[in-house]
């Protein structure tokens, strides 16, 4: 039996059905986890889907971080369970302290909605282990605050511990060191700004996103 992916849904999340479709396309099981849920026993991994959790009030992810589900999610992550935050989900993970750094507004203050080519820097993580190192994948970005920023010492740690998973080939948003995705030191918590769930069919322009979800099934 394949594993069950829990898709975390906050008020304002809007990519949950795309993530569900990705899992379904691969023949996997999924379950939506509303933000008031605290029991995560029935899932094997968690994906925080993109959108505008709690309206992005105050800062993206700032309020979502205090939703009831987060305490259980943090425990799940600390016990080694795979947790993936896509776009707004990445912002939630940095606000929750599960990933270092923060996502600031894009350079030039532009909302970006476009395809991006990414270089796979490492496959040693819960969400990139079905990819090939140094290969290029095409995904799509759709964000206003995707410009990854961190302290110099955090950047040094990210590099030394091989925590940078994906980099933009042509940096669209000003992100430090072209960072598009990172993981924690235990490599089970992953945050990425591009949307793999929007790259699951030739009709959409790419199927590269499926390689990411394969790792959760």
């Amino acid at each position: 039996m394949s594993k069950t992916v829990g898709i975390v849904v906050f008020p304002g999340t809007n990519c949950e059905y795309d993530v569900a479709e990705s899992i379904e396309t691969l023949g996997g099981n999924y379950k939506f986890i509303f933000h008031l849920e605290t029991n995560l026993n029935s899932v094997d991994s968690l994906v925080i889907a993109g959108g505008f959790a709690h309206g992005d009030y105050l800062r993206p992810g700032a309020i979502a971080r205090f939703s009831p589900v987060m305490e259980s999610l943090i425990k799940f992550a600390n016990e080694g369970g795979p947790v993936v935050g896509i776009c707004n989900g990445f912002q939630v993970l940095t606000e929750a302290g599960l990933l270092p750094g923060a996502l600031q507004k894009n350079a030039n203050l532009t909302f970006l909605c476009q395809p991006v080519v990414l270089k796979v820097e490492t496959t040693n993580s819960s969400f990139t282990n079905k990819l090939t190192v140094n290969s290029k994948v095409k995904l799509f970005i759709n964000h206003f605050s995707g410009n990854y920023t961190c302290e110099q010492e955090v950047l040094t740690d990210l590099k030394e511990n091989d925590q940078i998973l994906l980099t933009y080939v042509d940096n669209p948003n000003g992100s430090t060191e072209n960072i598009a995705a990172i993981c924690n030191t235990k490599r089970n918590v992953v945050g990425l700004m591009p949307h793999p769930e929007r790259a699951i069919s030739e009709l959409l322009g790419s199927t590269d996103g499926l390689y990411f979800f394969k790792s959760l099934i």
Binding site: R59, F66, T94, E95, G101, A102, Q104, C150
Partner: peptide, 8 residues
């Protein structure tokens, strides 16, 4: 705790 993100 909430109002400011110290990274930014």
């Amino acid at each position: 705790r909430l109002l400011a993100n110290p990274v930014l």
